[in-house]
Amino acid sequence: MANGSRQAAWEFFGAELKRRREDAGLTQSALGVQVFVSGGYIGLFEQAIRKPQLDVAQRLDEVLQTDGLFERMWRKLIKDQPFTEYFAHAAELERLATEISDFAPAVVPGLLQTPEYARAVFLGSNPFATDEYIEDLVRARMDRTLLLKDAARPVYWAILHETVLRMPVGGPATMARQLDHIVAMAHERKVQVQVLPFAAGAYSPMGKMMWLMEFEDAPPTVYTEAVFSGNLLDDPAVVKRTQASYDQLRAVALSPEASLDLIDSASEEFRRCASTT
């Protein structure tokens, strides 16, 4: 399903939610209380600005007595996503964000990956997959990267732990090209990149990826990921604490200029290694 038709489908979801809510004689706030979200979020669902998670869709069916309608629509829309279920919501929000702040403790963020690097990542986590399956994943990943090439792209800030620069994902030649790509994107002013060096020692939050998104007409949200699972967090207190942690990382990371120098240096080391193999 193309992005435009998918958005139209979510708009239908929202329009149907509004119709069923009004038929039940409920305000947005009253429905929100019963499904454990704010009335404002019900309004965002109805406008297709935000997409409910599965448990919310299920509670909407229960409260509005719609015999599983919203769960079925939700599952259909998520199934048509080119991403895993737990990441699909984040991918939807990514396209709407005005600012994205990424912290990568071990792997190059998806928006900055080259096809070769992405292929190596997917092969590492799917060692018995077919070539066709891997290439489908790579295509979906590369489609995401187009976001940063758009004239209306979000402000994008990435902090990479030095581990990301040293781990030879895909081999030396692939790593050299990947790091060169990051530097090129920074020089083109499409991204702002900092590196958290090994010398920084302990940091907050140790080893955990963070992905913060801000929007023009919706509250900010945070995405975190674990093994075969992901969480979208939009509780204001949680978002505030996460933003504070990200600000701490910015403070202890190398400056953008020193970071690019370090990335360049790591790339050159990989190039020398590739030339001797």
Rank of each mutant, 00 (worst) to 15 (best):
W10V: 05
F12C: 04
K18F: 10
A30I: 11
V33D: 15
V33G: 06
F36N: 02
L60I: 15
D61T: 02
V63D: 04
G68F: 08
E71Q: 07
R72Q: 13
M73G: 08
I78T: 01
K79W: 09
A88N: 02
A91T: 03
R95K: 15
D102G: 02
P105H: 00
P105D: 01
G110A: 01
L111H: 01
Q113H: 03
P115Q: 06
Y117D: 03
A118M: 11
A118I: 11
R119Q: 08
F128A: 01
D131F: 08
K149W: 13
D150T: 03
P154R: 04
V155K: 05
L160W: 05
H161V: 07
T163F: 12
V164F: 09
L165W: 03
L165F: 08
M167C: 06
T174P: 02
D180V: 07
D180G: 00
D180P: 08
V183I: 14
V191R: 08
Q194C: 08
A200L: 14
F215S: 00
D217E: 10
D217V: 10
F228V: 09
V238H: 13
R241T: 12
S245H: 15
R250G: 00
V252S: 04
A253R: 03
L254P: 04
L254C: 03
S259R: 06
L262P: 10
I263T: 04
I263L: 06
I263E: 02
D264A: 12
E269A: 04
E269M: 06
R271P: 09
A274E: 09
